[in-house]
Amino acid sequence: MPRRALELQHRVRNTLGVVRSVARRTVATSETIEDYSCHLDSRLEALPECRRW
């Protein structure tokens, strides 16, 4: 596999791990499905801002 493809695969896997973690933590702090939906959406919208370097 080309080096760029390997790097992209690595980044995608890392990002999916972050998304899984955010989803799990959101479940733990949400009381209703509506809370979960709202909180998860907000956290996922904020994710690109947090990932800027």
Rank of each mutant, 00 (worst) to 15 (best):
L40R: 00
I33Y: 11
R20N: 08
R25F: 07
H39L: 10
L44C: 06
D35V: 07
R11S: 08
C50I: 13
G17N: 14
V12I: 07
L8E: 07
R24D: 14
V22H: 02
A23S: 09
T29G: 06
L6M: 05
V18C: 07
Y36T: 04
T15I: 12
R4G: 05
S21H: 11
R25P: 02
M1K: 00
P48L: 03
C38P: 01
R43H: 12
R11C: 05
G17M: 06
R51P: 01
R25E: 15
A28T: 02
E34L: 09
A23I: 06
C38L: 14
R3Y: 02
S30W: 00
L6T: 05
C50Q: 12
E49C: 05
A5N: 02
H39E: 12
R4K: 12
S21E: 07
S37I: 02
E31M: 04
H39W: 04
E31P: 01
C50Y: 11
L44K: 08
R3D: 01
E45W: 04
W53G: 09
L8A: 09
L16I: 03
T32N: 02
D35Q: 14
V27E: 09
R24I: 03
R24E: 15
A5V: 04
W53P: 13
V18R: 15
R52L: 05
L47I: 05
M1T: 05
V18T: 14
E31S: 11
L40G: 01
C50G: 03
V18D: 07
L8R: 02
T26I: 00
R43Y: 08
R11W: 02
T15E: 15
L6H: 03
L47T: 05
G17R: 15
R24Y: 09
N14C: 10
M1I: 05
R13H: 11
R13M: 08
H39V: 11
A46D: 15
R20Q: 08
T15Q: 15
D41P: 00
E31D: 11
R11Y: 04
T26P: 05
C38Y: 03
T32I: 00
P48R: 02
H39A: 10
V12E: 14
L8S: 05
E45A: 13
R51M: 15
G17Y: 02
H39N: 13
A5T: 06
N14W: 05
T15C: 12
R52K: 12
E7C: 01
T15H: 15
R3S: 03
